[in-house]
Write a protein that binds this DNA or RNA. Sequence first.
DNA 1: CCTGCATTCTGCAACGATGTAGCAGAGAGG
DNA 2: CCTCTCTGCTACATCGTTGCAGAATGCAGG
Lengths: 335, 335
Amino acid sequence: MAVTMNDVARAAGVSLKTVSNVLNNYEFIRPATRQKVLDAIAELGYEANLTARSLRSGKSRMLGLVVSDLSVPYYAELASKLMSAAAARDYRVLVEQSAATRANELAALQGSLSQLTDGLLFIPLVLDADAVAAARRGTKPLVMLGEHIDDPRFDQVTMKNVGAARAVTAHLLAGGRRRIAVIGASPGDRVGSSGLRLAGYREALAEEGIDFDPALTVPAEWRRDGGASAVARLLEGGQPFDAVFGLNDALALGAMHELLLRGIRVPGDAAVAGFDDIDEARFSSPSLTTVAPGMNEIAERSVQLLIDRIEGTEKAAGGVHAEAEFELRIRASAP
Amino acid sequence: MAVTMNDVARAAGVSLKTVSNVLNNYEFIRPATRQKVLDAIAELGYEANLTARSLRSGKSRMLGLVVSDLSVPYYAELASKLMSAAAARDYRVLVEQSAATRANELAALQGSLSQLTDGLLFIPLVLDADAVAAARRGTKPLVMLGEHIDDPRFDQVTMKNVGAARAVTAHLLAGGRRRIAVIGASPGDRVGSSGLRLAGYREALAEEGIDFDPALTVPAEWRRDGGASAVARLLEGGQPFDAVFGLNDALALGAMHELLLRGIRVPGDAAVAGFDDIDEARFSSPSLTTVAPGMNEIAERSVQLLIDRIEGTEKAAGGVHAEAEFELRIRASAP
DNA sequence: CCTGCATTCTGCAACGATGTAGCAGAGAGG
DNA sequence: CCTCTCTGCTACATCGTTGCAGAATGCAGG
């Protein structure tokens, strides 16, 4: 039914392989022959069968993206940018949702997703480095995103969590705030986004000679309702504070919602700052001070790195680590 | 390198074709033979090569999803649900962003996306029905989502735009509001989401015997900043109003932001209602009254319909149209 | 004992592309 | 004049699976 290379070859009066050579930009073809083939292709409306090409060549020009849940705005935005970056290089992205499940993350690394793609962009949430390394021995390229795993064995593109959190905290301190509550971490966190951002917060405090008060560090699910209930617990615990640093924007927005509900003025009584600079941060009332982690750069560099690995351009033996630049966005919630 | 069916056949002491038959649940195989094959598969860790299967069988068990931009929360959520619904039926979804461009929408309908997939879920934004019909003649199944196109030729799953908008408006009217501004439509809109929702608004007004005032209908881009600037224009135009109906939640949230900025109390001075029930609607301050358009049902039914077409279960000659049920969510912005 | 049918399994061709080998002719070098 | 390399093309095998045709067996019916 569909036009095949054979039909084109017959129409152009050349062999099947010559058509293939034209399509693959083989060097030694006479211009006249090339033109005959191109004319036949145009006339018949031929389009290469990607499945057949993929079977024969072992390449699909598809990248896999493993993410917990696309309905989380941060991941959706990142996925969108990754897809655009890939499209610009003539690659497609096949997304798989892991629901932050061990079984699903493992399945994505080993199963049919990696079979269908030339390499994987992976945002791990439950697997640790050893589990990933074990699952992935001798297979296709893998680039890690996010902060859950930080291991020299893997290629990785991250944001500057520590530096950006330090900058946000320093900004709150510069505004005269002295008791800054942190929402979304436990005082003992050392790894992952929460540990890194908490470390940045502590560095900024230390620079100002302020002691770290564990009572101001409130664990919470990184969602809006987590931020709201963390603030509620903080207030009910009677801890005084003059600023809230949500470790992501959803937490900060939820926290701000709860503060306003209880008649606490923002930024008058308490400043609020977040992390991520999602679109909503500009439109909350008051608009949210936050830090943009350089998502465009993360998307660009991770796609570039993965494709370089696939095409053999990047040959570094160990893992390549890249960090995107951040930018502080000062808005009304913490001027 | 990878284990093939041939290796399994050799290990099990049967023919290649018998292995294939086992995998495809062919009826006439002795239990003992089936077991030998399954054992060999388990022992060797064989996994079927999907590319080869796809080339040979012409089926990929992938659905294409054409959407303008995944970073729009509504689309991201819908995509997430579509992917889950597909996964439950052992299908995968390959997403393509059209950026609401005519060329990209056409390319998605005709190009390699449809070649790689067994059918398409399409949320058109610029193509009209005739253009889609022309682009799609004699190819794979296509299910339309959204309201941009409403045509009996196509399979389509939609929300009850008119009914839901009427319900929201009726709720505002029941709360004593009489001058309800509508944001996101032009008074003359008849088609698409804006036209349908505007029609529902007018129906509710008519039921209460209230005249439609075109001055209260303000066009705007369906984004937060669109809602904000529409409210600004409304206020600067001096039109009195006691409620704002944003034709989606982003518009309503942007509008509410602008109202609060200008010291107008919500819901005291003006009630605000939206449409979509995105996650943020629960967490804005005040929380947003809106209508949930039944996105789960839309995702389930559209995936089911598409797969039924692909597998030949659904044989209706014309287009099948389905509408999901909506649910009014009454919150603080318009109690 | 033969025929017919259901059951169980096998072998070959084919899906549509690319890789490898090789052939013929032109020009270069000895 | 004979080899050797480069150019431009063709033929054939191959990627890993499934569709089709058919072989071999057992069993029932006449």
